[in-house]
Structure formats: structure tokens, C-alpha cells
Nucleic acid binder design. Structure first.
Lengths: 233, 233
DNA sequence: ACCTGAACACCGTTCAAGT
DNA sequence: ACCTGAACACCGTTCAAGT
């Protein structure tokens, strides 16, 4: 429906590494990470698959790139949080940053999984970690303890926990429940436990069990333990 | 070179789901998880790729199967550990089981990554978790707290922690160090921290940072925190 | 019951060629 | 400098056919 003077469906803004990466994040947000293929990404961006290779070396670099985009988003949010008034507030300051990072990840649920597969450290993530170390330092920790602390937090430092399995939507859940019920004799403690508690709160979830309350429980357990070390040191 | 009476290169033991899964574990152990393809798996087992589909529904089922194999290996080891004498020993009992699980995973370094991608709970893993819950129960925890505890442990319950990135062997490491050094101004705390500490202990590692000492530090921080909750409850 | 050959739809990527 | 078409090597998987 374009006029003859504009021959084909508009040449569009030229490709660029940035445009490719943002389109990749969009694709993953909309269709999950498995929908992110070079061919589909090219389509999304109005080009042929092979054109992408002019702007990124290969798919690994795309994956590195989108992790970096998300990490930058985290830094943007986190940088707006004020520094703590006194060093003793380190715990609250770290806590707020981690929960802010989590909010970003909740908007990009594919990100933790991709992150795990990365072999190169994203610069933006390293920047984020540097901030956490800084907070702990001014809270009175030695570099040595701050280092241990990062390890103890693990992926929690970025706002997510690891799932041991991750039943998707609906059906698998019922199936699992049926299975569990049928073997109550072999799994006595687990069945008893699950019948006492209930996983509600289907929002605020980054997986099956990684909901907000549980995340904060584990986070606080670790932060409290670290704080106690700080006091006795 | 076979005699005419034995026409082709020996018919071999027939295929079976078990044989397929053990061959798959072998392949992953030897060549990493990315070397596990249906076609290569078939070759390993002396058959055509399509023959596998008679014994497993698809590749997802192979992946489910091999984590189950590893989880059984964990249970085999863990079941040999004696139960604690008194309930108060829950902490040491849980600790020993987790460290035993870790030893198994160190022999199958691809397993944590595959585990994370599974959507169905492996029965063997669920059995393992049931055991941990049982120990905590007899240690005096309510089911509610035991449940929180499992969440707080996360993947640590199975003996591994999540890496935020995972530089492989050698070169990438140096590259990362060079990068870090070149931006000491933008990452002051991190560079300072890394110059103070050193990651040695290249054995006992399940990734870059997940070495034995750090794993135990985080584990003990959590277990101690839980124990404190138990005492004040 | 168990295995296979040929074929399909889809990957990531190379390379020589177009503008 | 930027983009592309054709082609390659490799996936997982289906389906009809063999024994």
C-alpha cells in the first residue's frame, strides 16, 4: 500500500548491535528464551539471519549481550537507591538493592537461566557486585569476609534462587501432586510437610518455589548470619 | 575380520532404557553435556538414532533420566550414612549428607546445569529431600520451618551453588583479569578485594568459585542460622 | 517386539557475492 | 560499509517399512 516512490516496505533504521540486542530481549520476554533463534531474531528486526553476523559475532555474543542489557537495567534501578546513612545500616542497604534486582528479574524470567550459562562475566553485573562489596566494606567487613559473603549469597545476590525443579503451568503440577499422593509411604516427611503448607502467592514468583516470602526468608537468614559475624569480629 | 558364520559386527546386548541412560551419563561425563545428542548417543550404544525412540519418548526424557541416575547415585551414598544418635545432631547429619551429595556431583559436573532445566521432579531427588526433612523433623523443627529451611538451602541442599559466571579453563581467566585490572577505577572494591584474596584449590571445584571451602562457609552460615532458630523456638 | 532408512523442519554459521 | 542467497553440517523427530 506504499506509493511507488517508496519502493519496498521502507528501508527502516539501520541495524546495529544495540538494536539487535534489544530485539533479542523483547523476543525472550515475549516467547521465552527458546524462541530466541538467530533466524527469528533477524525476522523481528526486519533483516535476513546472516545480516546479524555483521553486528554480533555469533549467538553466544547475543546471549552475553542480553544478560548485559538486563544487568544494566538492574544497575539503573539500584543506582537510584540512596547510600546508607551509617555503616551499620549495611544490611538494609544490601537487602534493598537485592530486592530491587529481583524486581527486574521478575520482569525477565528467562534471565536467571541464561545468566547461569554465561562463561564471561557481564561488565554490568560486575559493577553491581562491586557496589555490594562497597556497602559491606563501609559496614565494617574485611575484604575477606565480604568475599565469603558474596559466595554465601550466591545467585541470591542478584535476586534469584535456584530451583531444583520447576513445574510449569497447571497440568504438571496436578500430575506431581498425584504422584506424591500415590507414594506417601515412601516419602512420608515430604507428603506430611506439603499437606501442612501451601504454595500460594502465584505472583511474585520466579519459578515454582521461588516466591517472594521464601526468597526473603533465605536472604534474611544469610544477612543476619553475616551481621552476627560482623559484630563478633 | 569376523568369520562368515558371524555376519556383522556382533549383534550385542539388546537396547534398553537403562542401557541408553547409562550410555548418556557416560557421554556427558566424557564430553560434556553439549556432546550428548541423540545421534551420538545412538552411535555410543551401537544403534541408529531412531532406535532410541523405541526406549525413550524423546530427548527431554533422556535428560530427565540421567538426572535420575545421578540422584540415585547420591541416594546410594547417602543411605550408607548412619542416622544421628540424638535429634540435636540434626545439623551434622544434614551437613554430612549434603557434602556427600556434593562429592557425587563433583564426578558429574554437568549434572547441576541439567538439573536446573528439568521441569519434572526426579523421584530420586524427592526421596533425598524427604530424608533431609526427616532429619530436621527429628531435630525438632516443625514442618513449616523445615520447609523454609529447604528453600533457604536451595540448590545447596543437593551440594552445589549457582555461579554468576563461570570462566572455563585458562585463557578466559587471564582475559577477565586483564579486563578487571584495566578498570580498577570503575570497580574499586572488587579489584581491591580480588587482590587480597586468591582462588586456589583448583580441585574440589564445581565451577569457578564453587570450591569446597566457600561451599562449606555458605552451608554452615545457613545451618547455623537454622539451628539458632531451633533453639529459640 | 524391536530396529531402521529416508525424509522433514529447523538450527547456527561460512563464504562468496551483491549494493 | 553494510547486507544477502545459497549452501553446509548438524540437530530432534516422524513415519512407513523392514525383520
Amino acid at each position: 500500500m506504499a506509493t511507488r516512490s517508496q519502493p519496498r516496505t521502507e528501508p527502516r533504521i539501520p541495524l546495529s548491535r544495540e538494536r539487535v540486542l534489544y530485539a533479542a530481549v523483547d523476543l525472550a520476554d515475549k516467547g521465552g528464551i527458546e524462541s530466541l533463534t538467530m533466524r527469528r531474531l533477524a525476522e523481528e528486526v526486519g533483516a535476513e539471519a546472516m545480516s546479524l553476523y555483521y553486528h554480533v559475532a555469533n549467538k553466544q555474543e547475543v546471549l552475553d549481550g542480553i544478560v548485559d542489557v538486563i544487568a544494566q537495567e538492574i544497575n539503573d534501578v539500584v543506582d537510584k537507591i540512596d547510600a546508607p546513612a551509617t555503616g551499620a545500616d549495611w544490611k538494609m542497604a544490601v537487602r534493598r538493592r537485592i530486592l530491587a534486582a529481583r524486581e527486574v528479574l521478575l520482569r525477565h524470567p528467562w534471565a536467571p537461566g541464561v545468566l547461569e550459562t554465561r562463561t564471561k562475566a557481564s561488565l554490568a553485573i560486575v559493577r553491581y557486585l562491586d557496589g555490594l562489596i562497597g556497602l559491606m566494606r563501609s559496614g565494617g567487613f574485611s575484604y575477606d569476609v565480604a568475599h565469603h559473603a558474596l559466595h554465601a549469597l550466591g545467585s541470591r545476590a542478584l535476586g534469584f534462587t535456584q530451583e531444583l525443579f520447576n513445574p510449569g503451568a497447571g497440568s504438571a503440577d496436578e500430575e506431581a501432586n498425584a504422584m506424591l499422593a500415590s507414594m506417601a509411604d515412601r516419602l512420608p516427611h515430604l507428603v506430611a510437610m506439603l499437606s501442612e503448607i501451601a504454595h500460594d502467592d502465584p505472583d511474585s514468583t520466579l519459578g515454582w518455589c521461588d516466591d517472594q516470602r521464601e526468597f526473603e526468608f533465605g536472604l534474611d537468614l544469610i544477612l543476619d548470619g553475616l551481621d552476627r559475624m560482623r559484630e563478633t569480629a
